Simulated scan of single mutants.
Amino acid sequence: MSFVHSTDTADLPVALRGGVVAIGNFDGVHRGHQAVLERALGQARQKSVPAMVLCFEPHPRAVFQPDTPLFIITPPSMKARLVQALGFDALVQQPFTREFAGHSAEEFVTAILEQRLGISHAVTGFDFHFGKNRQGGPAFLMEAGARHGFGVTLVDAFRDEGAEIVSSSRIRTLLEEGDVAQAAGLLGYRYTVEAEIVKGRQLGRELGYPTANMALPANTALRHGIYAVKLRRADGSVHNGVASFGRRPTVEDDGAPLLETFVFDFSGDLYGEVCQVSLFGFLRGEEKFDGLEPLIAQMKRDEQEARALLAAVSPLTPLDREIAFA
Results as ranks from 00 to 15, higher is better:
T97Q: 12
A157H: 00
F266M: 03
S167G: 15
A212E: 10
F56M: 11
T173G: 12
E287G: 08
Q46D: 07
D8W: 11
G178H: 08
V198H: 01
E114G: 03
D160K: 10
G268E: 15
D269Y: 11
G24T: 07
N213Q: 05
G151C: 12
R205N: 12
V155T: 09
M299R: 06
V251T: 15
A228L: 14
C55L: 06
E177I: 05
P217Q: 15
F71G: 00
R321N: 08
A144W: 02
A297Q: 12
V277E: 05
I197W: 07
S48Q: 14
N240G: 10
E161F: 13
H30Y: 09
V152Y: 04
G32T: 00
M78W: 09
D156S: 13
L12C: 15
T261F: 07
G145Y: 01
K230A: 08
S2A: 14
S120D: 02
D265I: 09
G125N: 04
P66E: 03
G28N: 04
Y191P: 04
Y191Q: 00
G151D: 12
V242I: 08
R116V: 06
D290S: 05
E287F: 10
A184S: 14
T68D: 14
Y209N: 09
F128W: 15
Q202T: 06
G272V: 04
E107G: 06
A195K: 10
V274R: 14
S104T: 10
S77K: 08
R159M: 12
E57T: 03
Y189Q: 02
L54R: 00
G241Y: 13
F64W: 03
R223E: 12
A44P: 05
G18Q: 06
K132V: 07
Q94I: 04
P294S: 10
A297K: 13
S314D: 14
T220E: 04
P58T: 00
F64V: 11
L117I: 12
T192V: 01
F96I: 12
L16I: 11
L113S: 02
G18M: 09
S168H: 04
V36Y: 01
D254I: 02
E322Q: 08
N133F: 14
N213M: 02
V63W: 03
R159F: 14
D235R: 05
E287W: 10
G178C: 10
F140Y: 14
